[in-house]
Amino acid sequence: MSQRRTAYEIVEAVLTRLGPKELPYLPQLWAVYVKDPTDSERSRERLMGSGILTEVTAWAPVVISFVGGAVLDAAKDELSDQTRAGIRGLVGRVARRGKAQIVEEPLPPFDDLQRRRIGESVLSRALAMGLPRPRAQLLADAVVGELQRDPRPDEPEG
């Protein structure tokens, strides 16, 4: 029998594939993401800031925001019968807030179609956010590969 993984564990596994040196920063950054998953979407220029959205080589923030978001969205779809396609505004905000509530719960198993959709979602979001295509493709492949991997086996009790 195997144990289902949480979103954090999936993100951690993807980051292990892409940027293992960044793993020590993951807990802190995951906490930032969980606190407000929409922070980066709402982010605007700051008074006395640089006003520049820099393109960085670090993987951890990318994996957290894209993979975390896509996986949790898919999980929510699975957990809820409601579809959120096209939902905007207040309803959308409520839905995103719900995302923060399920981050600690084990995710349901994904079938092939869902895994492919998550991969496509990660790729399209990464490209939309300005990630270069090779990096975006690398990220999407890593996510799909990780989701296809067998869940971790049960740890022995005691």
Binding site: Y25, G49, A58, P61
Partner: peptide
């Protein structure tokens, strides 16, 4: 803040620079 941003604030003579939470990681990468 998961992205790289900073801004200055504060009051003379104690000025401050606010760094995003991920800045520590970015100093590495």
């Amino acid at each position: 803040g998961l992205s790289l941003w900073m801004f200055t604030y504060g009051r003379r003579p104690r000025h401050r620079v606010m760094l995003s939470a991920a800045t520590g990681l970015y100093t590495l990468t």
